[in-house]
Simulated assay, not measured.
Amino acid sequence: MPTPPITVRGLLLDMDGTLVNSDAVVARVWRGWAVEHGLDPEEVLRVAHGRQGHVTMATLLPDRPMERNIAENRVLLAAENADTEGIVPVPGAPAFLAALQDLPHALVTSAPPDLASARMVAAGLRMPQVRITAADVSASKPDPEGFLKGAAELGFPAADCAVFEDSAAGIAAGLAAGMPVVGIGPRAAEHGPTVHVPDLEHVRVTPLSDGRLRLTFTD
């Protein structure tokens, strides 16, 4: 059966894994950190996607002082900012963002502002005018704070916004905010999004006469 459309007023877009494929950089940086700390790199990567770095560290090494996690995360962020090799747009992302140019949408990312800018530039993507980054929230995904703030910035109730996400943490955050979640890519499929598509080439956004946005999906 065809996937039913979703009708909302605003769109909230994750960055890494949703608009930007930064997996190569994330793997290089976090695999190195995992080896340094005697952890399984695959388990570290599973936890790291979608979360702020210091939260990933706290999840994996719960007995460490948070001050140490924050200090180490600064080092990793510097490495990630400097490493843009292999960063590309997710298939369909350039056309998808172009279609949203004059429609209500916001970036909601766990990356800090400098890293978000560096990765969007590296992928050749337009930065949305409205954005919520790690600097704007007190709690990382899977906490819904970022998406709730994104909806508020757009001027809509949470239930009138749809989230686009790829990670377990991000999907959980969107659902906790009371929003339908469009899961993007293979990583999203196993985490229970409202709708799942392979990439952004399989999503169409149609503005309606009453100002709402209709999202339709192809397999």
Rank of each mutant, 00 (worst) to 15 (best):
A135Y: 03
V8A: 09
A118H: 14
I184W: 08
V203I: 15
P180L: 04
L148G: 09
V108W: 02
G53Q: 05
V195F: 05
Q129I: 08
F164N: 05
A78H: 08
A176Y: 01
A95W: 10
I70T: 01
G185S: 03
V181E: 05
A168C: 11
A189V: 10
A27W: 05
V137M: 04
D160S: 14
P113H: 03
L107H: 04
L97D: 13
I6M: 04
H105C: 14
N81F: 10
Q129L: 11
M179P: 10
D143K: 00
I70D: 00
D102P: 04
G183W: 05
G174Y: 00
L213W: 08
T84W: 11
R204K: 13
A173D: 00
A78K: 12
V195E: 06
G92S: 11
L115K: 15
A189N: 07
D14Y: 07
T84L: 15
D143A: 07
A27H: 10
V8S: 08
L39I: 09
A135W: 02
V181P: 01
A95P: 11
A173S: 03
S140C: 06
A48P: 00
P94E: 11
G32D: 11
F217S: 04
K141Q: 01
E145F: 03
E80H: 10
A34N: 02
H191E: 01
A24V: 12
A188W: 08
R64T: 11
V137T: 11
V44Q: 04
L208T: 12
G183M: 07
R31S: 14
T206L: 15
P104R: 12
L148W: 06
E80Q: 14
P113I: 09
A58D: 09
P186C: 04
A93T: 13
P89M: 02
T59V: 15
A71C: 02
L200S: 13
